[in-house]
Amino acid sequence: MMMIELLFQGLTLGGLYGMIGVGLALSFGILRVVNLAQGELITIGAFLAVGMISLFPALPLALVLAGAFLGCAALGVAMQALAVERAMAFRDPMVAMLVTFGLAVILRNALVESVGANLRGLDIGGLGQARVTFGGLSLGLLPLLTLGIALLSFGGLALLIFRTRFGRQVRALSDRPEIAELMGIRIRRVHAQVAALSAGLAALAGVLLAMRASVSPFSGVAHLLIAFEVVVLGGIGSIRGALGAGLLLGMTQVVSARFDGNAGLLYVHLVFFVILVLRAISGRLS
């Protein structure tokens, strides 16, 4: 019974980790810039939700999610258009990455200045305790909901990328930017749309993470590193890879927390590092 509960928790968390990884991979795959502010966007998404619920305690979860998505998407577009896009014009790719690092520092400290440095939880009323029973198996409603939303996001993203005109343009741009422009694709606009989508996904994951455990304005770094690990382990272009890597890391965290209560993300990072060493030894990973 305990085993199943543990597995289920790992699955939920893994779904969320996959989601934050996929947001980072999306922008990296298309823009060719590792957005070091991604962790901050996740955290800001969570705090937007905290703010909305404290203002309107009766706001339905769907609206909270939508609000956080839109807020972060707007922020993502603004950062892309005002700073990152300009930095991408320089030949050295390091410049754009350094710019996103600068933005991350600005966002993190702006968040601390505006909401204080304390841990915050997302007050979701009775939802946190509610449970549902399937044939003798009792599962928390909240983790079930979280998992559902994560899977929906994955599915929605896959549909968007593989079934729509926008997705076609995104894939064409990521394959061959120069030829894509020749096909009349508006590169800057697609970049901005991708930045919005990626930031929006970050916000959704941020809200769901905050419902699970409290967040602080300093959580961004941890979120960024997990997203990065998911991308490295799962591969950039692969939504399925991200989900798999997310599950591995989520399971690791849930299981390690059971044995060592205050380990934080230590074992998650260690698993990542060990895989890295193994890959280095066997010479894979180009």
Binding site: A83, A87, V99, V105, I106, N109, A110
Partner: peptide, 16 residues
């Protein structure tokens, strides 16, 4: 926090 915001902005502006 305000100091870091200013420095972050300075870094971004210089980079651009």
């Amino acid at each position: 926090g305000q100091y870091w915001i200013v420095m972050g902005a300075a870094a971004v502006i210089v980079l651009l």
